[in-house]
């Protein structure tokens, strides 16, 4: 579904990624873990087109996506819920959700009707968002904003969702809630690439995982394999 090969990218002249390869198969949850500054967010950004990779390839459902702008990559079926949530603060919760489906909906009239079914489904998954549908997204709590960022990504009915540190800055209870949601998305057959600081919890939901160090994949394997790897255990799961 998502195949990344030998991806190089960075900011300006400084290269951050030097040859990242990873593979997310349909219906899988794949975790990407690693220390702060390892390049996880940069990997996500290079995949979704927020930054332009200098070389390497990104295949989305067999189609080459590297080098396209972020908007075009989104339109071919990749949703990226970025680090720091980035909800549209002045807009209402519901407007945020509608914009998540921007590329599927008519741009002038009738967009609400056409989005109704998907809205219902998302509200079922996140009842709190239904309660707050008219509220400005910027006034939601951190946890609610994270739910909104995930829900907004779902609205696009994407082929793959990239989820960058959904637990960042949240209280432990809310982190649990976020992981419950991820588990439910997995049960619903959604394909996910998940970046997480909470490596243990991430490995519990994941089908496969990559460990990143200094802009490269250092170790990869199933969670069971990584749990047996002494180096991984010491550095990330201790």
């Amino acid at each position: 579904m998502l195949k990344v090969e030998n991806l190089h990218a960075g900011y300006g002249s400084s290269e951050v990624l030097n040859g990242v390869s990873l593979h997310v198969k349909p219906g899988q949850v794949v975790a990407l873990i690693g220390a702060n500054g390892a390049g996880k967010t940069t990997t996500m950004r290079a995949i979704s087109g927020m930054i332009r990779p200098t070389s390497g390839s990104v295949l989305l459902d067999g189609k080459a996506a590297q080098g396209m702008g972020a908007a075009r990559i989104a339109r071919i079926g990749l949703a990226h819920a970025p680090e720091g949530r980035k909800v549209f603060g002045p807009l209402s919760v519901e407007d945020n959700l509608l914009l998540g489906a921007f590329s599927r909906l008519p741009h002038f009239f009738g967009f609400h009707r056409k989005a109704e079914e998907e809205l219902q489904r998302v509200y079922e998954l996140f009842p709190r968002l239904l309660e707050r549908r008219g509220q400005a997204a910027g006034t939601l709590s951190g946890g609610e904003q994270q739910m909104l960022a995930i829900a907004r990504a779902l609205m696009a009915k994407p082929k793959v969702i990239l989820l960058d540190e959904p637990s960042m800055g949240l209280a432990p209870v809310i982190v649990q809630e976020v992981f419950n949601i991820i588990r439910r998305l997995k049960d619903a057959g959604i394909t996910l690439l998940l970046v997480e600081q909470f490596a243990k919890s991430a490995l519990e939901v994941a089908d496969y995982a990559y460990v990143m160090e200094h802009g490269q994949i250092a170790v990869e394997g199933t969670p069971a394999e990584l749990n047996k790897n002494d180096r991984v255990l010491a550095a990330y799961l201790g």
């Binding site: 927020m50 972020a70 908007a71 970025p82 980035k86 909800v87």
Partner: peptide, 10 residues
């Protein structure tokens, strides 16, 4: 509000 996030919505 957020140009980068808007691009991510297509």
């Amino acid at each position: 509000a957020d140009r980068d996030a808007a691009e991510l919505m297509g």
